[in-house]
Amino acid sequence: MTDSVTTGWNVAQVGGLLLPAADVDTAVSAFLRTSPPTLRWDVDFSFDWTQADADRLTEGERSAVQFITIIEDHLPGYFALYEQNFPVDDSVDRATYIHNRELYHFTVRWAQEEDTHARALTRYQLAAGLAERDALWDSLAEEGRKQFVLPYDEAVQFFTYPLVQEKATQIYYQHLRQAVGDPLLKEILVRLSKDEARHFSFFADMVRLYLERYGDAVVDPIREVIAQFRMPLADTIRGYWRWALKIADTARYDHTEAYDHLVKVVNRAVDARSDKVDELISFVTACRQMQTNPF
Rank of each mutant, 00 (worst) to 15 (best):
L75Q: 12
D254K: 07
D48W: 06
E224P: 03
R119Y: 04
P87Y: 05
L233F: 13
Y124N: 00
F106H: 00
R242G: 14
W241G: 06
G8M: 11
L136I: 07
G8I: 10
R213D: 00
A258M: 04
I68Q: 02
K186M: 08
R109C: 12
F45L: 14
T6S: 15
G129K: 09
V266Y: 00
N10T: 14
Q84W: 08
D195C: 07
W41T: 09
I222R: 00
P87R: 04
R101F: 14
A80P: 02
S201N: 10
E224Y: 11
T285A: 11
D93S: 15
L233E: 08
M1G: 13
E83N: 12
K264N: 06
D48I: 10
Q178S: 11
H117C: 08
D44G: 07
K194F: 13
D260Y: 07
H175L: 09
A141H: 05
R94I: 13
T50L: 15
Q174W: 05
A155E: 07
M231K: 02
Q165V: 08
V277M: 04
A12V: 14
L140I: 08
R191M: 13
T285Y: 04
D195G: 04
V207A: 03
S282Q: 12
L163Y: 00
L280C: 05
G144A: 09
V277P: 02
K167S: 03
A64T: 05
V92H: 03
D216C: 08
S193C: 11
P294F: 07
L75N: 10
W241Y: 13
A27I: 02
L140S: 01
V265S: 01
E83T: 14
A286E: 14
Y240I: 05
A204E: 01
R252E: 13
T50C: 09
Q66D: 14
D55Y: 12
T50P: 03
P162D: 06
Q147N: 10
G215C: 11
Q51G: 06
D44H: 07
S35R: 10
I171L: 15
A251M: 04
L233P: 02
A22S: 14
Q291A: 15
T38Y: 08
F283G: 03
Q228A: 12
L17C: 07
A120P: 03
Q51K: 13
T38I: 11
W110D: 00
L39K: 11
Q13E: 12
V207G: 01
S4P: 06
W9G: 11
V24L: 15
A179K: 07
A227G: 07
L245S: 10
E154M: 06
Y210E: 03
T58G: 15
K276Q: 15
D55W: 14
N85L: 10
E142S: 05
D89T: 12
G239Q: 05
L280F: 08
V88Q: 08
A131Q: 06
I171S: 01
T122W: 05
N293Q: 12
E257P: 03
V65G: 01
A64I: 01
S139I: 09
L245F: 12
A30E: 14
F86W: 10
